[in-house]
């Protein structure tokens, strides 16, 4: 892990403002940004651990613990609310094998409710379609 981390840090070190690109890569590679990773990134960029921790904890996309479950990002912003996403979300059974994450806006606001699974967008969701998406991931 140390070695891979150093590769990621080195790959971005020459860029202006390298911290976010590094954190994106670390999150994608390891599923989270650990205490050890924060320590190493801080050292690599000559920042304090507090500074790096502050950035990691600020952004919704970075997590301090890995969650191995597949993720379904469900948009619950106003436009999807107007198209009934809250009823869908309420009717969705509690999930332990799929992480249903709330996002605010996927930019598909005229054809909601919508969701993003593994980079692929899905729109015009109803209960059956949403359940099928969740089932397919579980």
């Amino acid at each position: 892990m140390m070695e891979r981390l150093n590769q990621i840090i080195a790959a971005h070190a020459g860029r202006e403002g390298p911290l976010l690109p590094i954190l994106h890569d670390v999150q994608a590679e390891f599923g989270h940004v650990s205490e050890d990773a924060i320590r190493q990134i801080a050292q690599g960029l000559n920042l304090s651990r507090a500074e790096v921790h502050g950035v990691v904890s600020f952004y919704h996309d970075f997590h301090d613990h890995a969650d191995p479950r597949p993720v379904l990002k469900l948009c619950r912003a106003e436009a999807c609310q107007a198209r009934g996403v809250e009823a869908l979300a309420a009717a969705l059974p509690a999930q332990d094998r799929v992480k249903v994450e709330t996002v605010y806006c996927l930019g598909l606001c005229s054809v909601g409710p919508s969701a993003l699974v593994d980079g692929k967008p899905h729109a015009r969701l109803n209960s059956a379609k949403l359940n099928a998406l969740v089932e397919a991931l579980a």
Partner: peptide
């Protein structure tokens, strides 16, 4: 960073 709900013109 088009985060507003109901906007998709940037996208």
């Amino acid at each position: 960073d088009e985060g507003d709900s109901a906007t998709f013109a940037d996208r």
